[in-house]
């Protein structure tokens, strides 16, 4: 069996959905960040797959940029977690639910 575009897209879609489910249902902020990274990785995989099968490099360029942007996002996110812990709060979604409708 040769691995075609659809295989890559299926993996990417699966990863994306797992990530989204994790963001929705996990309470620990660190795990939520990991799931977000997974969603971004899934999207990058789709980009690279399209790029490979179209024989065009633009998609891979964007995938590289997505990776670097994701790193910046995590840097800020971890800094936020540190700030949360410094205030003596647990970094969980339940702890940070003071503002409601």
């Amino acid at each position: 069996m040769t691995v075609g575009l659809n295989h890559y897209l299926a993996v990417s879609g699966l990863l994306f959905c797992i990530g989204l489910a994790g963001v929705l249902f996990r309470r620990n902020l660190l795990v939520v960040y990991m799931c977000i990274e997974m969603m971004l990785a899934a999207a990058s995989l789709a980009l690279v797959a399209f790029s490979r099968f179209r024989g065009d490099l633009d998609g891979q360029v964007l995938a590289l940029l997505v990776i670097s942007v994701a790193a910046a996002e995590v840097a800020v996110g971890l800094a936020l977690i540190v700030a949360v812990c410094r205030r003596g709060l647990k970094p969980t979604a339940d702890e940070l639910a003071g503002m409601k409708l």
């Binding site: 977000i36 399209f50 997505v66």
Partner: peptide
């Protein structure tokens, strides 16, 4: 969290359009 999730949607959308 919401910004990062929507940016993942954005990247996936760009991948599909591409």
């Amino acid at each position: 969290i919401i910004g990062a999730v929507t940016s993942a949607f954005l990247v996936l959308g760009m991948a599909f359009v591409y």
